[in-house]
Amino acid sequence: MDYSFKLGTCVADFKQHLSVLPYLTADYSLRQVPKMGGCDSKSSKGSTAKPKAKPSKVKKKNLNPADYVFSKQTDAVLIRKEGSIDGEQFNLEECKNCDIFLLDTIATSFVDDCHNCRVFIGPVETSVFIRNCTNCSFVIACQQYRCRDCQDCKLSLYCGTEPIIESSQNMQFACFDFNYFSLRGQMARAGLKPWNNKWWMVYDFNKNEDKPNWGLLNQDEASSLLRLEACAAVVTPEELENERVVPITLGSRPWPTKETCFVVFLPDSETLVEAFLSKATAKWAICRARSMVLQEEQLKTFFAWAKEPKLASKCKGQEMTGIQVCGQDVQQQVQDALTLTGMATGAKNIRIIPEKETEALAKSFFETWKDEV
């Protein structure tokens, strides 16, 4: 398959829709990847600050394109282990009834004309583009997700930006639910923060109010989308039972209670974020989580309740993380957790949004304010 042709198609396709939603230029503007001729997108980490330069990779020689595609396979188990893709582009095409596991970091990925397959696509630094697939189950971790001309597919998704569907029907989405020993390190190498997951914020270019083209997949089904016995030789039962790398969030599902608590972590608090999520998973339901850089006016609005005049300027141009949890008496329980446990040592970097401000500020933070490049 001619992947240089795919690049032209993909870029033209994205440009066609940028005029429809101007804000999409932040999340879905494209650039070429000087790797294997594929489509990539500018990595949006929700930051207006100049991104940190990534370490330059040693240029690889003599890559064989045939090693970076599964093509025209039927009734097969297809696995790529850690280190076998190593940040290159990897594509799937014309596979039928296959179990596919890409257990490595990937630059970008196309999936075309696959049917009745069960597919895991490991941490993807930029975009996954799925086209003309039917009755497939996907478990994907990526910065950007898009599908076109697909039908009857189920997804367990981690996506750092809002997922896009186009000309597709009966697409079902749930939060990412899969685990193996290397996943955390691979997500870090791909620049994906495990908690910054917008799996539920799906944008449909062909929205149909009378008959929606997408819906929510029961979260209990997400863990069974893959036939795990097919990868038992490389992913052990112990790995699957480890604490989740990507937390399960409710997103737009019904929340078990209206009692919520909105916790904000100031810049450079990733260790505290992970500790809080570990505690939250055991005690409360995690509604939603997000990392982003707020603009100056947004910071003023966001911290208007605070009695710390320098708080907004302290966060200017830097990424913050917000986590909203819900549960019975959750506000007091979170307060106790942050003052009476080991997390108290990081109290100066954590703020609890006042209860009366929670609804409005959470809506702005998680829904209204868009990422900027």
Results as ranks from 00 to 15, higher is better:
residue 55 P to A: 10
residue 280 A to W: 02
residue 91 N to P: 01
residue 288 R to A: 14
residue 55 P to F: 08
residue 118 R to K: 14
residue 265 F to R: 00
residue 323 I to A: 01
residue 59 K to M: 09
residue 223 S to G: 07
residue 185 G to W: 04
residue 212 P to H: 10
residue 239 E to G: 04
residue 324 Q to W: 03
residue 255 W to D: 03
residue 97 N to A: 13
residue 123 P to W: 02
residue 85 I to E: 01
residue 223 S to Y: 07
residue 246 V to G: 01
residue 144 Q to R: 13
residue 358 T to Y: 03
residue 314 K to F: 13
residue 148 R to H: 12
residue 330 V to C: 09
residue 204 D to I: 12
residue 91 N to Q: 10
residue 247 P to S: 05
residue 74 T to S: 10
residue 70 F to P: 01
residue 101 F to L: 05
residue 110 F to D: 04
residue 138 F to D: 00
residue 77 V to H: 00
residue 199 W to Q: 02
residue 36 M to L: 15
residue 82 E to N: 06
residue 371 D to R: 05
residue 3 Y to H: 07
residue 199 W to A: 00
residue 107 A to P: 00
residue 188 A to M: 07
residue 68 Y to H: 05
residue 193 K to G: 00
residue 345 T to P: 00
residue 15 K to I: 15
residue 271 T to E: 13
residue 38 G to C: 11
residue 347 A to D: 06
residue 41 S to D: 04
residue 11 V to C: 12
residue 44 S to E: 07
residue 21 L to V: 14
residue 45 K to E: 11
residue 349 N to Q: 09
residue 2 D to V: 13
residue 298 Q to K: 11
residue 99 D to E: 13
residue 195 W to P: 00
residue 249 T to L: 04
residue 85 I to G: 00
residue 30 L to R: 04
residue 163 P to Y: 05
residue 370 K to P: 02
residue 219 Q to D: 09
residue 88 E to D: 07
residue 369 W to D: 04
residue 199 W to Y: 13
residue 97 N to P: 00
residue 216 L to H: 07
residue 160 G to F: 02
residue 82 E to Y: 03
residue 154 K to L: 12
residue 118 R to H: 06
residue 288 R to Q: 15
residue 200 W to H: 15
residue 87 G to S: 13
residue 344 A to G: 05
residue 183 L to P: 01
residue 269 S to K: 02
residue 78 L to Y: 04
residue 23 Y to D: 14
residue 227 R to Y: 15
residue 262 F to I: 03
residue 285 A to C: 15
residue 146 R to V: 15
residue 124 V to M: 03
residue 355 E to K: 10
residue 318 Q to S: 09
residue 370 K to S: 12
residue 233 A to Q: 15
residue 123 P to F: 03
residue 155 L to D: 03
residue 238 E to Y: 07
residue 52 K to N: 08
residue 280 A to C: 07
residue 247 P to L: 02
residue 274 E to N: 08
residue 183 L to Q: 02
residue 146 R to T: 13
residue 17 H to S: 11
residue 268 D to C: 08
residue 367 E to K: 07
residue 154 K to D: 15
residue 272 L to M: 12
residue 255 W to C: 01
residue 110 F to V: 09
residue 7 L to Y: 15
residue 164 I to W: 06
residue 48 T to F: 11
residue 364 S to A: 10
residue 254 P to N: 09
